[in-house]
Design a protein around this nucleic acid. Structure first.
Lengths: 375, 375
DNA sequence: CTGAAAGCGCTAACAA
DNA sequence: TTGTTAGCGCTTTCAG
């Protein structure tokens, strides 16, 4: 060993010069202002050397552990400030095993429905001193799995997942290895795991019942891809309400698919004008989520109150549109908060059976859902 | 050393039993399905032992390095699958020095302006194989610093920051240590650093000039907190346009403050009805960001076209309101993309002087900004 | 109150 | 082609 023993005055540069002999020459840049080398970080050892104390003493000061005299502490703090030391959490994590971070996997960071959800998760994580690492699956199963496993390799303590995939058995070894996992908005597939969901079935059923109560008999449903749990549940709610009212559902009244505006608009216009349908065009629509709704509100028949509309999910400014949009409101922030709280309860050791939490939805009548059927 | 030397058949449980003698009893739970212990992860050493190969061979297989016979590789892969091994990236990061992750600090994950921005950053990060760690500052300087330093302790390779603070010198040691940093939406304060901004001054000036061109002389400005760079720049643009038209600005026409709806509504209504102002109430408003705008569109005078409105920032459904809202549009996704691209260019070694990129804004006339002044 | 030594799980360098 | 050794920077243990 060439390393000096203790209480030496070896500094960062000296220490690193040693290392440089073996290190890859990683574009060595130099600070224009201080002349200090870029990319070189002082370590606790450097701080210890500079302060003339042992390594462990520095560790104690950095972590606020007791048992350090004020004078020693001051010397250490001075050295830390002089060197610009910042603890390397990678090493800490490696040693401690816990990362104090949780992963969040959702479909699209920019979807206004998920924004409050992720903010809520972040708030809870922050309250527990954890960082949030997140990524979007873009509704792609492979990308979801890739992301989740990357987060597991980072050894996040826990995961909050809005699943895109339809088989989550790949998570079994991770969960067994101790990664707490909570699914939100949609349940896990082929895996027993905690889930926090909205009452999608009941919400959709209530929305359709509302339209029926306002005289509609021919009601269309435009929803998301059928493999998405929420889309399937809402369709089920739609069918249940129709059946309960003794109404048949014409196959042309149901359109599921991607939520891109062209597809949605085409389906809405077809349903509202369909002369080929045996029973004529629909007089009302239930839209399956906020992306679908904000497209359908642009359809002339809806704007001109020739067709009724109830949208799943509330959205900003819904009450200022013409007509104001009646919605089935979820509470995305609450979904996120409950999921994150459940996650941290698991991390604190709660080991009871996987739980399924279902949050109620709320019908908010604003006008578009109370438009009477046009003959 | 008690450790068996090589090609032993020691397995995870045996290895961990050793460890257990010293480990903190960390709520040892047991899987209900497999009986395997929770929280214990096989390591490369375990895999090597099981496959009957050396540690480095496992490393080669896991990292796709060449120089492993297909047969050996298969044995290693079998062992990996049997053990449910997943590489521990903490250790990898510690050794390699690079984390393949970037940090994003913004004001509020749920603000619709920042959502596309963060999505864009994520897309670019993903394209470069990096994970995104993010957090919100909630417009609080201390929380920003806390977050940024936590990310630095994690040794993120780079940072994209929407700053809330007014002094970023605390970042100097980090930047010198090699953390690439790009500010977006707002520049760094007291620090030379890359920044990607919108033309806030020019945008606001164009918006006010637009109102003046439509006959308005008494124009109010409702903006965000004056310490926020964008708010200050937009106010400056407002004043410039007024001055260029030879119009005096009454002190009561400018209101800066937090964007909570109560404050904003009160200011708007005061300005639009102010009989105390020497020159009478304003006939038009420039709102300083999307949060302010969505509150002001609810004010009766605006809805009834008794006052004109131009809003800074475009927002979803702006064109469907009554009247449709004229806006000065930024491109939040482009801001994010350019910032992230600049960041990765820095990470790839671009060492030229800090750059300041300014993106143009675009006036989108839709109706509310073309309302003539009411006498 | 303080510090030396061991080792977290991985990768880099160097043998064999 | 494969394996051995020496750390990465920290925390833990245990001895002063």
């Amino acid at each position: 060993m060439l390393l000096p023993r203790r209480r030496t005055t070896e500094n960062v540069s000296q220490a690193r010069r040693r290392q440089d002999r073996t290190a890859v020459a990683d574009t060595p840049r130099t600070s224009r202002t201080t002349g200090r080398r870029y990319g070189l970080r002082p370590t606790m050892k450097d701080v210890a050397a500079r302060a003339g104390v042992g390594l462990k003493t520095v560790s104690r000061v950095v972590n606020g552990e007791p048992g350090v005299t004020p004078d020693t502490e001051r010397r250490v703090r001075d050295a830390i400030a002089a060197l610009g030391f910042r603890r390397n959490d990678s090493a800490r994590i490696l040693r401690k095993g816990r990362t104090a971070s949780v992963g969040l996997v959702l479909e699209d960071l920019a979807d206004p429905f998920y924004a409050p959800l992720s903010r809520a998760v972040e708030e809870v994580a922050r309250a527990h001193g954890a960082l949030l690492i997140n990524g979007s699956s873009a509704e792609d199963r492979e990308r979801e799995q890739e992301l989740v496993l990357a987060l597991c390799a980072r050894r996040v303590d826990g995961l909050v997942i809005i699943p895109a995939g339809d088989d989550h058995r790949y998570l079994e070894p991770e969960i067994e290895a101790g990664v707490a996992t909570v699914f939100v908005d949609r349940p896990a597939a082929r895996l027993e795991a905690d889930a926090v969901l909205s009452d999608n079935f009941g919400g959709a059923r209530a929305g359709v019942a509302h339209l029926i109560a306002h005289g509609h008999r021919r009601i269309g449903f435009i929803g998301d891809l059928p493999r998405i749990h929420t889309a399937a549940e809402r369709l089920r709610g739609y069918r249940a309400a129709m059946a309960e009212a003794g109404l048949e559902v014409d196959a042309s009244w149901v359109a599921l698919g991607p939520t891109d505006p062209e597809r949605v608009r085409a389906d809405a216009e077809r349903m509202l004008a369909d002369r080929n349908s045996p029973s004529g065009p629909v007089t009302a629509l239930l839209t399956g989520n906020n992306r679908v709704t904000v497209t359908v509100v642009r359809v002339p028949a809806v704007r001109e109150r020739r067709a009724a509309l109830v949208g799943f999910d509330d959205f900003e400014l819904a009450d200022l549109l013409t007509p104001p949009v009646t919605v089935i409101a979820q509470e995305p922030a609450l979904l996120g908060r409950r999921a994150a709280e459940l996650l941290f309860r698991r991390l604190e050791g709660a080991g009871d059976a996987p739980r399924r939490v279902e949050l109620p939805t709320r019908l908010v009548p604003r006008g578009s859902g109370e438009v009477p059927p046009s003959s």
